[in-house]
Structure formats: C-alpha cells, structure tokens
Amino acid sequence: MDTKVNNTSKPKLMRDAVIDTIYNAAKEDKNIIFISADLGAAALDKFRKYLPGQFIHAGISEQNMVDLASGLALSGKKVFLYAMAPFITARCYEQIKSVLASMNLPVTLIAVGVGLGYDHATMTHFTTEDVACMRALNGIEVLSPSDENSAIAITRAAINKPAFRYIRLERQPQRHLYRGNFTNEVEQGFVHLVEGVDVVIVGCGYLVHKALLAKESLEKLKVSAGVIDLFRIKKINAAGLISIISSYPAVVTIEEQILDGGFGSAVLETLSDQNVSKPLKRLGIGDGFDVVNGDRDQLHELYGIDTPNIVEAALSIIGT
C-alpha cells in the first residue's frame, strides 16, 4: 500500500496537525466553531489570534461546553470540541448522550491523551474506559488515528462530512506510519499495515506502534505476524476487516482499556456477528490495576500489555 512510509522526519503533535487542518477550513467557513475546555496547543494560539470570532473558551466547564455545542449545532454551526480525553468523555457523558447523541448533532469531540497518554498524571487522567463508553453512544463514529497524517485525513473527513464523532488523539508525537492523502483508507476504516501468515495483531493509536515492535520480535522467532491499524472503532468495517482476518489462523487485540466493552470487545463482536470464529486473545488492562509512577511504556510493562506481552500472547495463541 503506497500510504505506508518510512518517514524519519520529526512528526508534529497530533493536536497541532488536527487544529491546523480545522483552522485552514475555518478561514473559509465562518460556521466552523472551535471550543476548548482550557486545553491549549501551539496551533490553537494561531487559531485564537486570527479567528477569534470562531474560537470559544468554554472554561473548565465541560458540561456547558457540550450543551452550548448542541445549541450552536442546531443553529447550523459545525462545532469542534476539544479537551483532555478524560474530561471530554466521562466527565460530560450525560450531556453527550442527552443533547448530542439524542439529536444526532454534527459535533466532533476531540480528545487529547487517550488511554494512558497522561502517564504521570495517573488515574484521574487515564481513559481506560473511553472506548467502551463512547462506542456505546447512539449513532457516534469513533476514530483513533495512529500518526499525524492519518489524524489529518480523519479531520478532513470530519470537516467535509459533519457528523457526531469522537476523535481520539495521542498526546505524544507518533512516528510517521503513512504518507499521501489517506482518503481511501479513511473510507475503509482500517489499514492492513503489515501482511503476515501466522497471526494478526489488531490495535489502534499508539498501540499500533507497539504491534509493529512485536511483529519484529516475532519475526526473529520465525513467526510471521500481520498488523492491522483499526482506527475506526465504530462503525467497524465488518466485511473489510473479516476479509483480512479470515486469512489468519489467530488474532491478538491490544488496548490500553479495561477489557470489558473495549477495543478487543468491539473486534470480537464484529467477528461473532458475522459468524467468524477464530482463536482470539485480548490484551488489555484488568480490573484492580493500581496507580504507579512511570512513563507510558513502563505502565504497559506493569499492566502486562507491553511488546513482550504481545509476543507472548501471539506465541501462546498459535501454540508455539
């Protein structure tokens, strides 16, 4: 696939890339409104300076931010809400359900620092449940890009086709995985990033990078692993995904979520609903996980979802 790339140039923060994309569209479309609940970005400074009439600081008031967005959207505005992941999801979940989902309004929720992205901030800033809670919302689309270019392409699609969406951004810059416009991939909802034979590892966001590392380790053990970047978690392209997964004997899913109702569950449901039965191991966070100091990778190690754990899960499921 020509979108895959070995690009060593320094990647931008996803949030800057996404806000720049919205900024460029907002210059041409006065109905685009960007609202932040006190989360910044270098790109946002430019937005605020040059398009002050289209920027709203909601205050640290996520509930009002969502209610306000509903009134703006009902008035024909294309609204983008922006905050740290834990506060734009569970903190105002009832608002999102009652006034966005219930009216299927074209509002895009942009979360920064999903999963364990705010590693040192620990428990209150982790979103180990956002996939489960957001994908349970009526009519929402849930997207979780793994690099700058896919984030930009997903944002462009959100601008061109306003709808009720949740976009999960990584807090830290991510190595480039894609080049080109990524338009067809956005449509498809996933990328079969690496083709393999023995097992396929499915993840999204930062976990795709971990899957790629695991794939390399497996290669040294003579195991050929495929990698799928399943960035559209809802609605999953069931037919497309199954056509790829069908060629593998086993599947490993990885996530920084409590396993109940999370990313792996979404994959399992998709397979089950299509009567596809595969050995499948879900790697994620178990109940009872505790607060510790450490960076994201150290947390992965502690919670049993690091690269060696992926390798181990892959070996175990294929019986070697």
């Binding site: 509930q63 209610d67 509903s70 009134g71 703006l72 008035s75 505005k77 006034v99």
Partner: peptide
Amino acid sequence: GHGVGMGSGFAFAA
C-alpha cells in the same frame, strides 16, 4: 440542566 447551555448556543449563534 441542559436548557440554559443549549439556549446559550442559540443566543451566541444569533
């Protein structure tokens, strides 16, 4: 608890 926020959206847009 939603009406004043929603109403603020209408009023802001106006």
